[in-house]
Design a protein around this nucleic acid. Structure first.
Length: 609
RNA sequence: GCCGAUUUAGCUCAGCUGGUAGAGCAAUUCACUUGUAAUGAAUAGGUCGGGGGUUCAAAUCCUCUAAUCGGCUCCA
């Protein structure tokens, strides 16, 4: 393979933003920059697309009844959607790979020709999936690629010969709706990946394996942070002591952060009369995903959001423009009926706690308040070392309120983002039913994106609940509500944090911050004395006094990813010192008690959102 | 909800084509009293996710159901 890289084999031409393979470039007489056979983005596009076709060819040989839909290149690989009568499972991938390798050996040239759409429709008249593909193509001339006996409609680009496709791996089998429409049939999808050389492929696969070790579900179990239980129910997390300690540290830091920024803590019930959800529109727009109960013949809905309670707090007094903005926050426990197939560790659950807040303000105050929230988000994300993306979601199909109101609200969000010079993406039609939003997205260990925080501008609920304040002219005006969450939910945020740090939590939030290992029973008293002093300093601390060897106890503490391990024996006890072992460096430092306490105080003071 | 797979001791996993279960770690007890990543021995622990069926016999085959995993769809 090295030989190819050195020789700089040309597999395509880049003209402007478009990539052409050598076959098309020759036919259409296109000139531009040459794309060499290597791991560049453009080359991988060609290689992966060709590998997808090679896979289709192999599948067709093994499953002659197979009909193919589409096979695009995706972020780190490719897939192909198809239909067969026979069920295909992960164990069949090996056979498909083997067949692909056999095809590579035949060194089929990959040839291209083009025919009119009418002819293609005719040619594939008995292939309903091809007809579906053709419905989605507007061009009058369709190109077809042929390798050996196999041909498929395709825009390309492709490598010139199947012999360039050695370094691939089929990853998994999945199901996918035809055209992404859940009302259509489900096709079989096989995911795979490919590179220009074997080493890069190996590295990529190793990286995926490494990432799996950071999976929060695996670490949550190993570190005894949380669990799920069949008897309790799907999507209902149970927080174990370690996880609950971690979570309560986060809660308390975030509480202070809110208070510093002028938010008032409030609290409202878990269940509210359905009548209230009808006023808000949740009953009509979201009822199928809510849980209900009946008390004395009156129907109540378990809250899926906290806004209604906060609205009632606002309505408890008459408000003046001088009071605005008013900011209420609550760690609100909400329940949402998620479909059975979507639960995913702590990332997608049926009960979760939002760090939810509502800002009631005048329309003029939207921009400054959104900017302030964006700053709050940035403070939190930086403290944990998270990279995040922002996305504006606009009016969805299921929506309440005027188009004009939506327009104003959406513009308000854009203005705030533009005003603070932050880059953002746009998700058309992805907004909440009552207003547009800015979503804060973070990626997990396997690079899947998850929405965490959110900022939503809402004119609709204030209208529906008739919210008012008295303005400068002593007249009644309607305030705007900004819904916002920074973490999104404690569940999802902690899940992401676990993956981000691979279980090695920073000192300020670690469930067990210090573990003391007395060398022998004689040192237990001193260990407990240290532990008590640290508990006074609000440091979570454990004494490892089990009847095990010193080495074993250190090993266990390390595996539990405890940031600081103190070993104490005769020397430490007599001199009132500690031997501190660093989690990562495996080095020891001998410190006096006072020196050590200063270090941990400093570590705690480093954190402020 | 849909497609595919999985479910055996607290955890991680063995258990071939049917003959009622094993290992390592963890736990408990005892001995050892340890100076920076696993001391040794003994003991205990499972109606094999749950229901129904086939069979002389089911962890193993069939069926329904639940949960989990990988995707799809969805996520106020």
């Amino acid at each position: 393979m090295e030989r190819f890289l050195v020789e700089k084999i040309v597999i395509g031409i880049k003209s402007g933003d478009e990539i052409f393979d050598t076959q098309s470039a020759a036919v259409q007489d296109i000139s531009g920059d040459e794309i060499y056979y290597d791991n560049s983005e453009d080359a991988l596009e060609i290689i992966r697309h060709s590998t997808a076709h090679l896979m289709a060819q192999a599948i067709k040989m093994l499953y002659p009844d197979a009909k193919f839909f589409v096979g695009p290149v995706i972020e780190d690989g490719f897939y192909y959607d198809f239909r067969t009568q026979e069920k295909i499972s992960d164990t069949d991938l090996k056979a498909i790979e083997k067949q692909m390798k056999a095809l590579i050996k035949k060194k089929f040239p990959i040839e291209q020709y083009s025919i009119s759409k009418a002819d293609v429709l005719e040619k594939f008249a008995d292939d309903d999936l091809k007809q579906e593909v053709l419905k989605r193509i507007e061009d009058e001339n369709i190109t077809i690629y042929k390798q050996g006996e196999f041909e498929d409609l395709c825009r390309g680009p492709h490598v010139p010969n199947t012999r360039y496709l050695h370094n691939f791996k089929l990853i998994r089998v999945a199901g996918a709706y035809l055209g992404g429409d859940e009302n259509r049939e489900m096709l079989t999808r096989v995911y795979g990946t490919a590179f220009a050389d074997k080493e890069t492929l190996k590295e990529h696969l190793a990286m995926i394996e490494e990432a799996k070790k950071r999976d929060h579900r695996k670490l949550g179990n190993e570190l005894k942070l949380f669990t799920f239980d069949d008897e309790i129910g799907a999507g209902l997390p149970v927080w174990l002591p370690n996880g609950a300690r971690l979570r309560s540290k986060l809660e308390s830091l975030l509480f202070t952060a809110h208070r510093k920024r002028g938010y008032q803590p409030v609290r409202a019930p878990e269940i509210l009369k359905s009548e209230a959800w009808k006023v808000s529109g949740h009953y009509q727009n979201y009822g199928e995903n809510m849980y209900f109960t009946t008390i004395d013949d009156v129907e109540y809905g378990i809250k899926p959001m906290n806004c209604l309670g906060h609205i009632k707090v606002y309505q408890n007094e008459l408000r003046s423009y001088r009071d605005l903005p008013i900011k209420y926050f609550e760690y609100g426990v909400v329940h949402r009926h998620e479909k059975s197939g979507v639960m995913h560790g702590l990332f997608r659950v049926r009960e979760f706690t939002q760090d939810d807040a509502h800002i009631f303000c005048t329309p003029e105050q939207i921009k400054e308040n959104v900017i302030e929230v964006l700053g709050f988000v940035d403070d939190i994300m930086k403290s944990f070392g998270f990279e995040y993306n922002l996305e504006i979601s606009t009016k969805p199909e299921k929506a309440i309120g005027d188009d004009k109101v939506w327009e104003i609200a959406t513009q308000g969000l854009k203005d705030a983002l533009d005003g603070s010079g932050i880059a953002y993406g746009i998700d058309e039609g992805g907004g909440a039913f009552y207003g547009p939003k800015i979503d804060i997205k973070i990626t997990d260990a396997l690079k899947r994106k998850w929405q965490c925080g959110t900022i939503q501008v809402d004119f609709n609920l204030p209208e529906r609940f008739g919210l008012e304040y008295t303005d400068e002219n002593n007249e009644k005006s309607q305030p705007v509500m900004i819904h916002r969450a920074i973490l999104g939910s404690f569940e999802r945020f902690i899940g992401i944090l676990i993956e981000h740090v691979g279980g090695e939590f920073p000192f300020f939030i670690a469930p067990t911050q210090v573990i003391i290992v007395p060398i022998a029973d004689a040192h237990l008293g001193y260990a407990k004395e240290l532990a008590n002093e640290m508990m006074e300093m609000e440091i979570d601390c454990e004494v490892s006094s089990k009847n095990e060897s010193l080495n074993k106890r250190i090993r266990v503490a390390e595996k539990q990813r405890v940031p600081m391990i103190l070993v104490v024996g005769d020397e430490e006890m007599n001199n009132k010192t500690v031997a501190l072992r660093d989690r990562r460096e495996r080095k020891q430092y001998n410190l006096t008690k006072a020196e050590f306490y200063n270090i941990i105080k400093e570590k705690m003071d480093e954190v402020h959102f």
